[in-house]
């Protein structure tokens, strides 16, 4: 029988949100657990542990990856961006309550793109990477872009809106450098009965 007390630990160093972070972990440590429990970056969530829900999505060298399907050791020497890191993006701006939000985070706040917020970090990282490649998606493309992530609360309607709004904010912010983004008790961007007229007829 293997004596588990001697499970071998490895020093793993990953560049997380621009900072090299090291922890001693067993080879089987998942990247999601490494981020959440060893580095205590709990913004990355785990919804299924088997690569289907997308809640654990982080950016590895800028590309969305499911951190529940990667070992921490595999991420050695790679660049990982978590939801916490999105706040440090060059196009992030402080909101009225102090948090810095990148265009995608800002758009989700404006469009009520989250309810319980558990799936949200996975959407934010996914959409942030997506807009890098497709800065001006159509509605159908926006829907397609988020079709690998599960959300049980929102029915996705406002997430699709958030993607489109994020593209707008991103473009707005491309030209400027700094400044405060509005976040207050302002009316939401799009809401309620307006959608009664918004449906495309079959």
């Amino acid at each position: 029988m293997t004596d588990m007390t001697t499970e071998q630990l490895l020093d793993v160093t990953v560049n997380v949100n621009g900072v090299p972070r090291t922890a001693s972990v067993p080879a089987r440590r998942l990247l999601s657990d490494f981020l959440r429990h060893d580095l205590q970056l709990t913004g990355t969530h785990v919804g299924c542990e088997h690569g289907v829900c997308g809640a654990c999505t982080v950016l590895v060298d800028g590309k969305p990856m499911r951190s529940c399907l990667m070992f921490a050791v595999t991420a050695q020497d790679h660049r990982v961006t978590t939801v916490e890191g999105l706040c440090d993006a060059p196009d992030a701006r402080p909101c009225a309550t102090g948090e810095r939000m990148n265009p995608v985070q800002q758009a989700f706040a404006e469009c009520h793109g989250l309810q319980c917020g558990f799936c949200t970090p996975g959407f934010l990282t996914t959409v942030t990477a997506y807009l890098e490649e497709n800065p001006a998606p159509t509605q159908d493309e926006a829907r397609e872009a988020i079709s690998g992530n599960l959300c049980r609360c929102t029915g996705y309607q406002n997430i699709v809106k958030s993607v489109l709004r994020a593209a707008e904010i991103r473009t707005e912010r491309l030209g400027e450098d700094g400044g405060e983004a509005g976040y207050a008790a302002a009316p939401a961007a799009r809401h309620t009965s307006s959608s009664a007229n918004g449906g495309e007829r079959a």
Partner: peptide
């Protein structure tokens, strides 16, 4: 249709879920 007060926190990794 007021924007949600909880969102800046939840959007920036500031949520505190059980685990």
């Amino acid at each position: 249709p007021i924007r949600r007060k909880e969102d800046p926190r939840l959007l920036t990794g500031g949520g505190r879920y059980l685990d």
